[in-house]
Computed example of a mutant assay.
Amino acid sequence: MTDRSPGAPRVLDVDSLKALAHTLRQQMLARLQREGPATSAELAAEFGADRGATSYHLRQLERFGFIEEDTGRSAGRRRFWKAVPQDLRLPRRSDDPAVAAAAEEVGRQWFERGRHELDDYLRNRESFGEWAEAVMHSYGSTRLTPDELKQFAEEYIAFLKTWHRGPGEDSPGARSITVLFNAFPSPDGRAEA
């Protein structure tokens, strides 16, 4: 049984991965996570998508537990959707080709979105004013065993969770911040026995 308690990691299964692998679904989920609830009509207009298709994709995201109806805002046929806060994880490995392919696609999309956002920020950093002065880029390396690398990643995620605020939980002057994290064996440091 999968632990779905708040804050518990959710390792995505093949069906959830396939549902999330659709580009528009990824975009809508990211939008709901960052900016808060929206209707299918608002999301369709924002992404230049067909309203019917947008509704279908939202139902798929709901079906797999990524979003839920915001019943406090919804009224009649006007349904607002909100992201379900959760620690989404890709499977580390899989011998099942379908799981491996779906995880690779979702991971690629996450990486591409992060890279695009970083590139966009760097091209326009002067327009961010005081935010540009608060930004930090860091590059470093260390030597770890596979178990230590897993522990390092879990400690990083735990630390990030202490700073998490969803839409509507902001401090005055807060804005959405993209945080990229990659920790992997250096290409020149091949597996050593």
Rank of each mutant, 00 (worst) to 15 (best):
T54S: 04
T54I: 03
L43P: 00
H137C: 04
R4C: 04
P172V: 06
W81F: 15
H57F: 13
H57D: 15
R10W: 12
F128C: 07
F159V: 05
R51H: 04
N182D: 14
G168L: 03
T54G: 03
D170V: 05
E148G: 10
N182L: 12
E192V: 10
R31Y: 09
W163N: 09
P167H: 06
I67A: 00
L20F: 14
S141K: 06
A38S: 11
W81Q: 04
R165K: 12
E42K: 05
E69D: 10
F181A: 07
L12C: 02
F64Y: 15
E46H: 14
E169K: 11
G52R: 12
E42M: 11
L180S: 15
A191M: 08
P187T: 02
A100G: 02
T39N: 01
E46D: 13
F128T: 06
A153L: 14
P37F: 00
G129R: 07
L24C: 07
A30V: 04
T162Y: 04
L24F: 13
I157P: 02
E105F: 06
Q109C: 00
A101T: 14
Q33N: 08
V179A: 07
Y156L: 12
G173W: 09
G114T: 00
D70C: 03
S94E: 08
R143M: 08
G65I: 02
R31L: 05
P37I: 01
L43M: 01
A49S: 15
R77G: 10
R143I: 10
G36P: 05
M28D: 04
G140W: 08
E104T: 08
V106C: 01
L88E: 05
T178P: 04
A30K: 02
L12M: 08
A100F: 03
E68N: 02
